[in-house]
Amino acid sequence: MLNSHKYIAFETILIKEVRRFMRIWVQTLVPPAITIGLYFLIFGNLIGNRIGSMSGFSYMDFIVPGLIMMAVIQNAYANVVSSFFSQKFQRSIEELLVSPVPNYIILAGFVAGGVARGLAVGVIVVLMSFVFTDLNIHHWGITLFVVLMTAVVFSLAGFLNALFANSFDDISIIPTFILTPLIYLGGVFYSVDLLPEFGRMVSAINPLFYMVNTFRYGILGASDANIYTSLMMLVVFVFVLGAACLILLRRGTGLRH
C-alpha cells in the first residue's frame, strides 16, 4: 500500500471516529462536562473554600489540573474501547480487516480518535474552569506534552481492553474497578503529603499519580512527583502498550479465528 493510500486510510478512520463521537455528543461530550462542572462547584467552590490552600494554592486551583486530566483519561479510554468493541460486536470491523489497511494504521486511527475525544472534553473542562478560576499555564510545553501523551496511553489501553473484550461487561469492568480508583487515588483531589507513609508508597506505584502531578506541574509549577521520571514513564507506557496492541493485532487476537 502506498504511503499516500495509508494516509487516506488513517484520515478515514479518524474522520469516522470523530464523526461518531460528535454524532452522539449528548452521550460523549455533555456528561463529562456536567460531572466535572459539579466537581468544580461542590469540591472546588463550596467545600474548597473551607479547606483553604493545598500545596500553596487555593483548593480550586489545585484540583483544576487533576480534573482536566481525569476528563481526558476517561474519555480517551472510553472512546476507543466503546467504538472498537461496538465494531467488533456489530462485525463492521470486518470492513477494515478485509481491506489492505496495515495494522499500525488501524491502531493509529483509533488512537487518534481517542485522543481527539479526550482533548475535546479536556478543552470543554478548561473553558468551564474559567468560570471558577484564572488558569495561568506555568509551562506550556510540559502541559501539552503530558496531556497528549496521557491521551495516547489511555487510548492504547482502551484498544487493548476492546481486543480482549467479549461482552459489554468486559468493557466496563476495567474503567469501573481499575481506572476510576487509580484516578481518584492519583492525587486529583489531594496532595500526597496528606497521606500516611503507607499511602505514599501506594501512590508511588500508581502511574496515574505521575501523570496527574506532571500535568499539575505544567499548569501550576508544583508537583508531588519527579517530573523527569514521570515524562520518561509516559514515553515507556506509549511504547509498551503500542507494541502490545500491534503484537495482538498481528496475532489476530479477538478479531480473527
Partner: peptide, 25 residues
C-alpha cells in the same frame, strides 16, 4: 459476507465512502 456487517447507524453513502477510504481512494 453472508451476514450484514455494517454499522446500522451510519448513512448509506458514508458506509461506501469509508470503505473507499480504507482502500486509499
Amino acid at each position: 459476507p453472508q451476514e450484514v456487517n455494517f454499522n446500522p447507524f451510519e448513512k448509506v453513502a458514508d458506509i461506501v465512502m469509508t470503505q473507499a477510504g480504507y482502500y486509499g481512494l
